[in-house]
Amino acid sequence: MIRRDGEDRICLNDLWRAAVQPMNKEPSDWRALPSTKGVLNALIQSPEKFGGLRDTVWIIGKGGKGGGTFTYQHLALDDAEYLSPELALKVKDVFIRYVSTDAKLSDEVLERASSESNEWAAIRALRRSQRRRYTDCLQDHGVKGKDYGICQIVITAAIW
């Protein structure tokens, strides 16, 4: 079991144990890596995504019973990839599929999602499709600049 603390941080010690305790790959070894510091700096430099966590201590050490090293999901995933080259390849595969807009990836995610999430995704996809047809039509008819924006606002309000 991989524990989480009260702030939803993930226990790196539990990840290490789940990876069958590889030698020289304890949480303290991972923390000392230049690449870990690079990922941490990238997170701190992304206030638009992580603004609420900007002034937070990203890696917390807790002593005593139930203690360990805890961190947020992005850094925990970085640690998990460090522990397991196989996991690192799986993460990269999903990223490549996402960037290449592999529609099957969405379907695989929705297979595991709730009925409510599937219904939301279906409605959202249909609306996106309607909007795409509309904007393509505007483009085909030479609508540009401010007029394009006005038409966009009107149709977006109607279909969303």
Rank of each mutant, 00 (worst) to 15 (best):
I2E: 02
R3D: 00
D5Y: 04
G6C: 02
E7D: 11
D8C: 05
I10H: 01
I10L: 11
C11W: 00
L12T: 03
D14S: 04
D14F: 04
V20W: 10
P27F: 01
S28E: 05
S28Q: 07
R31W: 09
L33F: 06
S35W: 06
T36N: 08
G38W: 12
G38H: 07
N41I: 08
L43S: 06
I44W: 02
I44Y: 03
S46V: 11
F50E: 08
F50Y: 13
L53Y: 11
L53T: 05
L53N: 10
R54A: 06
R54P: 01
R54V: 07
T56P: 00
W58L: 12
W58I: 07
I59A: 01
I59L: 02
I59N: 01
I60T: 10
G61C: 12
K62P: 03
G66N: 06
G68E: 00
T69I: 12
F70L: 04
F70E: 01
F70K: 03
T71K: 01
T71E: 03
H74Q: 12
H74P: 08
L75V: 04
L77C: 07
A80Q: 01
Y82R: 00
Y82T: 02
L83Q: 02
S84D: 02
P85N: 03
P85D: 02
E86F: 03
L87W: 00
L89A: 12
K90Q: 13
V94I: 14
V94F: 10
F95H: 13
I96Q: 08
R97F: 02
Y98Q: 11
D102Q: 03
D102V: 00
A103R: 12
S106Y: 10
D107K: 12
V109K: 11
V109E: 10
E111R: 15
R112D: 15
S117A: 15
S117L: 14
N118F: 10
N118L: 13
N118V: 13
E119A: 04
E119W: 08
A121N: 00
A122G: 09
A122N: 04
A122F: 09
I123M: 09
R124F: 10
A125L: 10
R133L: 15
R133Q: 15
T135C: 12
T135M: 15
C137E: 14
Q139C: 11
K144E: 15
G145Q: 08
G145W: 11
Y148E: 05
C151G: 07
Q152T: 15
Q152R: 15
I153F: 12
I153E: 15
T156S: 14
W160D: 15
